[in-house]
Amino acid sequence: SRHTFEINGERWTVEGVSEELKEILRAAERASNDEAERLLRLALKLI
């Protein structure tokens, strides 16, 4: 499935992501810059 999210003013669209990964991306959208970066690094390990 496709998911579009915005982090630090940048929009991203990813396809074929699991519900778990979507949850991480949604958390990154709400997080501070440092926390968002940490969550994105974690998410990339899952891809």
Rank of each mutant, 00 (worst) to 15 (best):
L42F: 08
E35C: 08
L39C: 03
G16Y: 12
F5I: 11
E15S: 10
G9D: 03
W12Y: 14
E35L: 08
R41D: 12
S32P: 15
I24F: 04
A31S: 10
L40P: 00
L46Q: 08
W12I: 15
R26G: 07
L39F: 04
N33L: 11
R30H: 10
R30A: 11
A27L: 11
R26F: 08
K22G: 09
R11S: 14
R2Y: 13
V17C: 15
R41H: 14
R2M: 11
E20T: 09
E19G: 07
K22Q: 12
R26L: 13
H3R: 03
E19P: 10
S32I: 08
E37L: 14
A36Q: 10
L21M: 08
E6I: 15
N8W: 05
R41W: 08
A31R: 03
R41P: 00
E20W: 10
R30P: 02
W12F: 14
R2P: 09
L21A: 14
E29N: 03
V14E: 01
S1V: 13
I7M: 02
G9Q: 01
W12T: 02
A27K: 12
L40V: 06
A31K: 03
V17D: 07
N8Q: 05
D34T: 12
L40H: 03
E29M: 05
A36P: 01
E23P: 01
E35N: 04
T4C: 15
I47Q: 03
G16I: 12
K22D: 05
R41F: 07
E37G: 06
I47V: 06
S1W: 06
A43Y: 09
L46M: 14
K22M: 15
L42Q: 07
I7H: 02
I47E: 01
D34Y: 09
D34Q: 12
A36V: 07
S1H: 13
L25C: 05
H3F: 15
L44K: 07
I24Y: 04
L44Q: 07
L42S: 04
F5C: 10
H3I: 14
A28H: 02
L39P: 00
N8R: 02
L21K: 00
E37C: 12
T13E: 10
I47T: 03
D34A: 13
K45A: 14
T4V: 14
H3E: 15
S32H: 11
H3K: 04
R11D: 05
A43H: 02
I7D: 02
K22L: 15
F5H: 03
E20C: 11
A28V: 06
E20I: 10
E29S: 11
L40D: 00
A27H: 08
A43V: 14
E10H: 10
L39T: 01
E35K: 04
L46R: 04
E19A: 08
K45F: 13
D34R: 09
H3A: 09
A31F: 03
R2Q: 12
R38K: 09
T13Q: 07
N8D: 11
S32L: 08
A28W: 08
V14F: 15
G9V: 01
N8C: 14
A27M: 13
S18Y: 04
A36W: 05
A31E: 05
A28P: 00
E15H: 11
E19R: 03
W12R: 00
L21N: 01
R26S: 12
R11H: 13
L25D: 00
R11K: 15
E19N: 08
V17I: 13
D34L: 11
L46I: 14
E35S: 04
G16H: 12
L21D: 00
L42Y: 09
V14S: 02
G16A: 10
H3D: 14
E19F: 06
R30K: 13
L44C: 13
N8T: 02
K22E: 12
N8F: 10
I24S: 00
E10T: 12
E29T: 08
R2F: 12
N8K: 03
L40W: 06
A43K: 01
I7Q: 01
I47M: 13
L40K: 04
I7V: 07
A36I: 06
I24P: 00
E23T: 11
L40A: 02
E37H: 08
R38Q: 09
R11F: 15
D34E: 14
E6L: 14
E15W: 13
S1L: 13
V17E: 06
S1R: 11
R38S: 07
R2K: 15
V17Y: 06
R30I: 12
E6C: 15
L25W: 02
E20K: 08
T13W: 13
G16F: 12
K22W: 14
T4E: 12
E35D: 09
E15Y: 13
E35I: 07
E29G: 06
R41V: 09
E37T: 12
R41L: 13
E6P: 03
A27D: 07
R41I: 12
S18R: 04
E10P: 00
R41Y: 08
I7L: 03
R41A: 13
K45V: 13
V17K: 03
E20D: 09
L46N: 04
E20A: 11
L21C: 13
N33I: 12
N33Y: 15
